[in-house]
Amino acid sequence: MRDFSYLRATSTDAARQAAALPGAMLLAGGTTLIDLAKCGVAEPDTLVDITHLKGLDRIDVSERGATIGALAKMGHVADHADIKSRFPAISEALWQAASAQIRNMATIGGNLMQRTRCPYFRDPANFSACNKRVPGSGCSAIGGVTRGHAVLGTSDACIAMYPGDLATALVAFDATVHLGDRRILVDDFFLLPGTTPDREHAIEPGEVITAIEIPGSAAARRSTYLKIRDRQSYEFAAASAAVGIEFEADGRTIRDLRVALGGVATKPWRARAVEAALKGKVLDPETVRAASLLAVEGAVDHGANHYKIELAPRVVARAILKLGETA
């Protein structure tokens, strides 16, 4: 790890100012940043520790929605009674992420800034080409080991998969990120790689994530997060789905549906085509399975990750049908 100086922020404003300095990075839970610093990927000159700031870890849940402070720990949010009851998909996405220890460290704000697990991105000593690390250097993953790489939202410059679970659930329920006074949809906060995979988030130097806000809805209340992986736990998703559903009074006709995919795309992936195809339809397995295939419209594989194109619609369908069963 390259040496750096350490600064403990005493207020959000101070953090904002310090973060704007060249070479400065905000340090929250550290579960991504310290890891990547050890990999030689992150090379900060200054770490601005914001974990001691007061008041940024509040979790407020009401009928209207939830506002979660950026420094709330993933584990605390997962276990929060009102989050569990009003936003089950959020809680489930959180407790199925990483490990209990990491969830006690990682913050909600920091989790949005989680980087890809692409092995080429993570190993600069062996793989110098990575457009995400060094713009214009090329992509080592294309033509390499791609089993964990994205099939949606890729570009010629980058096929790195976005590995997070929480943000997948957030985009399903139209959550927004608070950057101080600025508000932005989580869906817009994450950027497609395009020709600039080094730029992953719509955040400017000096901006600090202060909270996320999730609007309350019937679909959020009846929601789930289904995560499929090789290992039963402590692993990133092979494919996952955050799904919320609201039925008409008949209990069978879909009034509102939210679907987002994880583990298969370069960013948290809202599957609006699936939603549109099923809204107004009566829930039945065949209809759901057929519509779920729309989740991977436009998917492109790179060999070993082809299975994700098969898998993702099945995960979506299972999640929707599971919610139907609990009607």
Binding site: Y6, G30, T31, I34, D49, T51, Q101, N104
Partner: peptide, 19 residues
């Protein structure tokens, strides 16, 4: 490397001592 910080389990390998 699991230890407790303020009573909660965390990983000491990803925690700076200064933090």
């Amino acid at each position: 490397c699991t230890v407790h910080i303020d009573g909660e389990r965390v990983l000491a390998c990803l925690t700076l001592a200064a933090q």
